[in-house]
Design a binder for these strands. Structure first.
Length: 212
DNA sequence: AACCGGCTCAACCGCCGGTCG
DNA sequence: TCGACCGGCGGTTGAGCCGGT
């Protein structure tokens, strides 16, 4: 179902959701060879995916510093502020939210923020000065930070790679996700910060990847 | 329990700009 | 200078989930 007919000499290209095997191939290959030309990487790794697909999967999901979990109020304000300033420049906005991807911010904006903006009583961003005034008011009344230097943002959370680093076979890798999440909950509950996830420095220091 | 509609988000598509031969 | 290739970006889609009835 995910195969597409191509020129006779071209390999079939897979589309759709990534499988655990594909994830592991990509993670393992990048861990051993680093990122490179994505089309070449896809072929060299033996993935029947386009370079674009591999890049997207890595950047949005597999990358070790991808921060997963709920957008915090601080991040929401920052997104609103930066969107008021730059518009739909998601990648630019994402650069100010460490660990967040442009795709995640874009989805968050469309599903959470834009939805509320469509309500008649809410401020329309067509007038940038109005928006900035709103944000200033919100920031001053809530005392939430509106700059992008909050050190808490540097903390990262669970990702497939972090789990992969603790085991060497596919079944254990995916079977361990639930256990990892439970461990994550324990870490969170033992901290006074509500958003304290796995520290990627610890995870990378424990890296045990297969050489090929 | 079954159905339905809304929501979320991973993934794809198409376009554009940069680079290289 | 030009064309091919590649990466990056924003927009869109659709499968799966979830809550309401």
């Amino acid at each position: 179902m995910e195969k597409k007919a191509c020129k006779s000499e071209e390999v079939e290209v897979r589309k759709g959701p990534w499988t655990m095997e594909e994830d592991l191939i990509l993670i393992n290959y990048i861990a051993n060879h680093g990122e490179g030309v994505w089309n070449s990487l896809a072929k060299a790794a033996g993935l029947k995916r386009t370079g674009k697909s591999c890049r997207l999967r890595w950047l949005n999901y597999l990358r070790p510093d991808v921060r997963r979990g709920n957008i915090t109020p601080e991040e929401q304000f920052l997104i609103m502020e930066l969107h008021a300033k730059w518009g739909n420049r998601w990648s630019k906005i994402a650069k100010h939210l460490p660990g967040r991807t442009d795709n995640e911010i874009k989805n968050y904006w469309r599903t959470r923020i834009q939805k509320h903006m469509n309500k008649p009583a809410e401020i329309c961003y067509s007038n940038q000065s109005d928006c900035e005034l709103l944000l200033d008011q919100q920031a001053s009344t809530s005392q939430l930070p509106c700059n992008g230097t909050n050190a808490d943002f540097m903390e990262t959370s669970y990702s497939p790679l972090s789990s992969f680093n603790h085991c060497n076979n596919i079944e254990a890798f995916y079977g361990q996700q639930q256990q990892q999440q439970q461990q994550q909950m324990m870490v969170e509950s033992s901290s006074n910060h509500e958003d304290n996830y796995w520290n990627m420095e610890d995870i990378w220091s424990m890296q045990i990847l297969n050489a090929d």
